[in-house]
Design a protein around this nucleic acid. Structure first.
Length: 801
RNA sequence: GCAGAUAUGGCGGAACUGGCAGACGCGCUGGAUUUAGGUUCCAGUGGUUAACACCGUGUGGGUUCGAGUCCCACUAUCUGCACCA
């Protein structure tokens, strides 16, 4: 009898051996086929590793280990996305420098990840808060600035009226400040912006070049929200100025019954003197300022608005005078901040019109506009629409756009929902923006040879009460000279958002120590693009899009060799608490991975997280499920006792072994880890049923299981006296011929209901199978046979009347 | 509100392109081993039924010899919504 399986001892032993042997170092050997596997690097939070982290990490570790065994030069790196709000808030509260908080958190995360036996190449570790790293984050910003893609503008921010600080959306709960409960308003603040909209078309179109799971592509496309429509000028009665609106439905122009301006629309201020109900308008505007865009559109069911008394517009196609309203369902950030309202054919306009008793005109026949807006663009026909009457929506769009263009009333316009990226944070713990402001020269970039611009030490990390960054207190740092004219200048005190460092980190892994460029171009040519990037669905529209944007920019600048950073993108589901809810301290359902490793071992945790359910779906934690996986590993361990010498598979197991190699090899590549593990469980069950196995049988199991449970399998490999290390053993092959039994079972149905089962040779022909099937159910064939179906290897179906 | 997804036993889940629903694991029941508990091993386990058989994949329709899978209309839940990461 072998001694008991003791993960605590063997896991430490093998982790040390792998470190000492640099087992998973990815050499820059450009002659080998490469595979670059990437997982999202964590934010090293104070809470330590969460059981959610190991799910994607183990998954990609499995792929990486398997591909190494198949001869690939695999790059599987890890690092730290360490700038961020929680660290800064912790530092403020506890008076510890964020640098120290970060250092401690990173050390803890690293130790926790190390215990899980991941095959990361730790020689390539990066940290976004390291000046040698953010040197290049700043360098990219300067490139963007010089290319005209970084600019400053006034943007609304959340402003706590009591703390007098800018707040992140997350810090605003129910319209009040999370810390003090005071009301939060929207205040205008000068902000650095990145022109991601300049890449909107490419970001959509180039999705055709990559292999992302479909829902990621769809979500990115919808987020960018490209729509084709027209901008139309409406005359304002008695004024020179025109009111320009954007619409995706210019075909409904004859159905406009009112106009709506966003509460922030500049015309409101401009025409102040003519607005008779000014007080009411201002009151409404102030109320709207207290709501976020999200709240404004969320409350869409209960529309609010005010009719501007004193201003009206003229419909350019029929000369009709129509009222102008303001309402918060129109956003200044989309289109022109003004819309033409067609209640007959737009749901939001319809609800608004119903509420305020505005007329509804039907211009597309096909529905009943008294009941609901008719929004179908496929079937309707234009009515009540002058020269458009009788056309389809498609035809009318074309005709009206041409008409508007010819008469100087408007033009076709492509719009995007995507907005430019607000790149400023009035915070300390971020990369300083390497710009100075000179009275004479304006915004001037710091010369590249002066990078990195290091974050200075400050005494207090609290933002100033003017809404500036804590860096604004550092007068000796802020006051500098202009690199352009040598005159007095002030440094930018805003820092970059956390997204900056994570937008290009995969490039730095390629050549993390390089201090003359982002990464060696030869090395980038070899390793890029990232072959497989797995991450959370929640990063689809921000991080993933931001990093694609930066990469595309760097490609246009000739810095990187590929137009897209990631060839393939997959996504994992969340791990929920045992009650099926998201894990959180307040719900008390948090599971600490350290406890699981202590109680059951890292291999058990890894196996369980892969077995828990379909990789892309959310799954609830179950302590009993963990135990089941430990039991499986115990059974694998104890197979030692029934192994006998032999270089061939046990004949009774041969088919099952070939089937399992095939199944597991495919499942790992398709991220169907749960069924792959189930297949190995079945194999182990079969091993015990047979009662004794050969070394060859056992060897296959150990290799297949190694990517999931690397420590126990490596230990057993050594104990069985197999040559070399398991981690660099070749992946097993299977023989397709041998995956199918000679005799197969086929179901016999009558009218689709199973009535019998027959056993036939695997390559039986249709007629023989049907004849055998009929014989098996002869006593039940009482009617007239109208159809006979044979699905090879599966079933015979006799249809009778 | 907009966008994306999901729904199968007591539980987690499986089911390739429409072909035996419930693989594998947990839990539970019974038995063996054990002084006992635990561990381990063996057998059983969707529901109704004495049985034959029938019913069963969120709800309601449809297509098909055959639907968890395809189509239409719903419902519920989860994720994201731009300063959390």
């Amino acid at each position: 009898m072998s001694e008991a399986y003791n993960p605590e001892v063997i896991e430490k032993k093998w982790q040390k051996i792998w470190d000492d042997e640099k087992a998973f170092h990815a050499p820059n050997d450009y002659t080998k086929p490469k595979m670059y596997n990437l997982v999202e690097f964590p934010y090293p939070s104070g809470q330590g590793l969460h059981v959610g982290h190991p799910r994607p990490y183990t998954a990609m570790d499995i792929v990486s280990r398997k591909r190494r065994m198949q001869g690939y030069n695999v790059l599987f790196p890890m690092g730290w996305d360490a700038f961020g709000l929680p660290t800064e808030n912790y530092a403020i509260k506890n008076h510890i420098h964020p640098k120290i908080v970060t250092k401690n958190n990173v050390a803890r995360f690293k130790a926790q990840l190390h215990r899980l036996g991941y095959s990361f190449d730790w020689d390539r570790e990066v940290n976004t808060t390291d000046p040698n790293y953010y040197h290049w984050t700043q360098w990219i910003f300067l490139k963007l600035f010089k290319a005209g893609l970084a600019y400053k503008t006034e943007m609304p921010i959340n402003w706590c009226t009591s703390c007098k600080v800018g707040l992140a959306n997350e810090e605003v709960v129910g319209g009040v400040c999370e810390r003090c409960g005071s009301p939060v308003i929207r205040k205008m603040q000068s902000q650095w912006m990145l022109k991601i909209t300049a890449y909107a078309d490419k970001l959509i179109d180039d999705l055709d070049l990559v292999d992302y799971i479909e829902r990621v592509k769809i979500q990115q496309k919808n987020w960018i929200g490209r729509s084709h429509g027209a901008e139309v000028d409406f005359a304002l009665k008695g004024k020179e100025e025109k009111l320009r609106i954007y619409t995706t439905r210019p075909d409904t122009l004859f159905g406009v019954t009112y106009m709506v301006l966003s509460p922030e629309h500049p015309y409101i201020e401009q025409f102040k003197d003519e607005i008779k109900n000014w007080d009411e308008v201002v009151a409404y505007r102030e109320a709207a300022a207290r709501k976020s865009d999200f709240e404004r559109t969320e409350l869409a069911k209960d529309k609010t608005g005010v009719c501007i008394d004193g201003i009206s517009a003229i419909n350019p196609v029929n000369g009709e005078e129509i009222p102008v309203w303001i309402s918060d369902y129109v956003l200044m950030s989309y289109g022109t901040g003004a819309i033409m309202a067609v209640p007959g054919h737009d749901d939001r306009d319809w609800e608004f019109a119903k509420k305020f008793n505005l007329p509804i005109i039907e211009v597309i026949a096909g529905g009943n506009v008294d009941e609901a807006a008719f929004t179908d663009v496929q079937t309707g026909t234009l009515v009540n629409s002058g020269f458009l009457t009788g056309m389809s929506v498609e035809e009318a769009k074309k005709a009206i756009t041409e008409f508007l263009h010819k008469n100087g009333l408007g033009e076709p316009k492509t719009n995007f929902k995507l907005r430019d990226w607000v790149f400023s944070r009035q915070r300390y713990w971020g990369e300083p923006i390497p710009i100075v402001k000179c009275e004479k020269c304006g915004y001037v970039p710091i010369p590249e040879d002066q990078l990195p611009l290091e974050l200075p030490d400050v005494k207090s990390y609290m933002p100033t009460d003017t809404g500036e960054s804590p860096l604004a207190h550092m007068t000796e740092w802020v006051n500098t000279t202009c690199p352009c004219c040598g005159g007095p200048a002030k440094r930018e005190t805003d820092t970059m958002p956390q997204w900056a460092g994570s937008s290009w980190y995969f490039l730095r892994y390629i050549d993390p120590e390089n201090d003359t460029c982002i990464a060696d171009p030869e090395a980038m040519k070899y390793w890029l693009p990232v072959d497989w990037y797995n991450g959370g669905m929640e990063h689809t529209t921000l991080h993933l899009l931001y990093s694609r944007f930066w990469h595309k920019f760097l490609y246009d600048q000739g810095v990187v060799p590929t137009p897209e950073p990631y060839q393939k993108r997959t996504s994992h589901g969340m791990i929920l608490g045992s009650n099926g809810e998201k894990m959180s301290k307040s719900r008390g359902n948090v599971v600490n991975p350290d406890d699981v490793v202590n109680d059951f071992g890292a291999d058990t945790l890894r196996t369980y997280e892969m077995f828990i359910g379909a990789f892309e779906l959310a799954a609830a934690w179950s302590e009993d499920g963990v135990k089941g996986c430990r039991k499986f590993l115990d059974r694998v361990w104890k197979l030692q006792d029934i192994v006998k010498d032999g270089n061939a598979y046990t004949p009774a197991l041969e088919t099952r072994i070939h089937q399992t190699i095939k199944k597991v090899s495919n499942d790992y590549e398709e991220m169907k880890y749960n069924t792959g593990i189930a297949a190995m469980m079945t194999l182990v069950n079969d091993f015990y049923k047979v009662g004794s196995i050969t070394k060859a049988d056992y060897k296959v199991l150990l290799v297949l299981l190694n990517p999931v449970a690397p420590h126990i399998t490596e230990e057993l490999w050594e104990r069985m006296g197999f040559a070399g290390r398991l981690y660099n053993t070749a992946w097993p092959e299977y023989d397709e011929e041998k995956t199918v039994e000679a005799m197969i079972e086929v179901v016999v149905q009558i009218n689709g209901k199973v009535r019998a089962k027959i056993t036939v040779p695997k390559d039986v022909d249709k007629d023989t199978a049907i004849a055998a099937g009929k014989e098996a159910v002869a006593d039940k064939l009482t009617g007239t046979i109208v159809k006979e179906i044979y699905v090879p290897g599966r079933l015979v179906n006799i249809v009778q009347k």
